[in-house]
């Protein structure tokens, strides 16, 4: 992992403009990814994880979704202001993306080979034969057997796990500096999940590709990531190294998420889940957005917007008054509660 920053997002705000008015899906998000780093982005459904990644790729639904503020600096270049022509050069070449649904993410009417060769030849001026050879090589690299044959097969002839490997191969073809993976294992069964995660870790180490790993599963974060960002209702509520976040979570939402990780050994305990639901974007105009679900809510939380405060640990920040005022106390409280329970 290098020290150089690859991607810097400052004050990103992305809205959808629908018949119901403006929906602020991402509402002031700041983060960065270093070269070769694996950054996890976690949060429940609807927190704005996918919208953040689509904003980076410039792939928001046309005419509806729009970046309304902030900047996205990739190698120093602001992608928010980049032309579509420039974005086409970047997509798939410098920033690649894989998605949640391997079953539907490949075009059913074209062979695997056609879709891989296309991905190479958009960005590299090489012949079809050479591109095919490179595609076959990449299929081997992602652990697919009989690569040469696979090139002539159609997506429906492959299992979900195989298709996700093909997607990963496609994403890695041009050796991108950043790979955005939007819940790449959610749709797969557990053993395949573990294999795909191991593959991504391996590719990250072999090629030095930075990975932005979007997931709602903290288990995946623990497995794969260096740092983690926790998102809630379009904002970042906590940020830190994986080690700090697991050992010493500051934000009540993060604490809740950690408590809801299923224990692999313990079958007896009922699975904890945070009560309530993520508020709709724009629903809460004042105060902490987590207040309605927070066990430690105080008066101030409802009137004032908490900021992303620095903590005593380096690079560990949390958006919570409690974390600000009672550094270190959060853990004891949580411990006390779980003892009582």
């Amino acid at each position: 992992m290098g020290e150089k920053v690859l991607l810097e997002v400052h004050g990103l705000r992305t809205s959808f403009f629908t018949d119901d008015g403006e929906i602020p899906a991402v509402d002031g998000v700041d983060f960065f990814i270093r070269e070769g780093e694996v950054l996890g982005i976690v949060g429940e459904s609807g927190c704005g994880k996918s919208v953040t990644s689509l904003s980076i790729m410039g792939l928001l639904p046309k005419g509806i979704g729009k970046v309304v503020g902030g900047e996205i600096l990739f190698k120093g270049e602001n992608l928010v202001e980049a032309s579509e022509r420039r974005m086409k050069q970047i997509r798939g070449n410098e920033i690649a993306m894989i998605f949640q649904e391997p079953m539907t993410s490949l075009n059913p009417l074209f062979t695997i080979g056609n879709q891989l060769v296309e991905a190479i030849r958009i960005h590299t001026k090489i012949g079809k034969k050479e591109a095919r050879a490179r595609a076959a090589e990449m299929l081997k690299l992602v652990g697919l057997p009989r690569a040469a044959q696979l090139l002539d097969e159609y997506p429906h002839q492959l299992s979900g796990g195989m298709r996700q490997r093909v997607m990963i191969a496609m994403a890695m073809l041009c050796r991108p500096a950043l790979l955005i993976a939007d819940e790449p294992t959610t749709a797969l069964d557990v053993t395949i999940q573990a294999q795909i995660l191991a593959l991504m870790k391996q590719l990250n180490q072999t090629f030095g590709t930075a990975v932005m790993m979007i997931t709602h599963d903290l288990g995946v974060v623990a497995e794969l990531c260096d740092r983690v960002i926790v998102m809630y209702a379009g904002q970042i509520v906590e940020e830190g190294s994986v080690r700090d976040i697991f050992r010493n979570p500051k934000h009540p939402y993060t604490i809740g998420l950690i408590r809801s990780i299923p224990d692999i050994r313990g079958k007896k305990e009922r699975l904890y889940s945070i009560p309530g639901q993520v508020p709709k974007p724009g629903a809460i105009r004042r105060g902490c957005r987590f207040a309605d679900r927070c066990e430690w809510v105080v008066d101030r939380c409802r009137h004032e917007d908490p900021l992303l405060y620095e903590t005593s640990e380096q690079g560990h920040r949390a958006r919570c008054f409690l974390a600000l005022e009672r550094e270190g106390l959060v853990d004891e409280r949580a411990a006390a509660r779980s003892e009582r329970a």
Partner: peptide, 26 residues
């Protein structure tokens, strides 16, 4: 609206090819 069109866009394919190759055939 389908996922594979998003994939085609994410590859860096131009809208022309997304429309006339990937979308039209389907």
């Amino acid at each position: 609206k389908s996922d594979y069109i998003r994939t085609a866009r994410a590859k860096g394919l131009s809208m022309f090819w997304v429309v006339y190759k990937h979308s039209l055939k389907n």
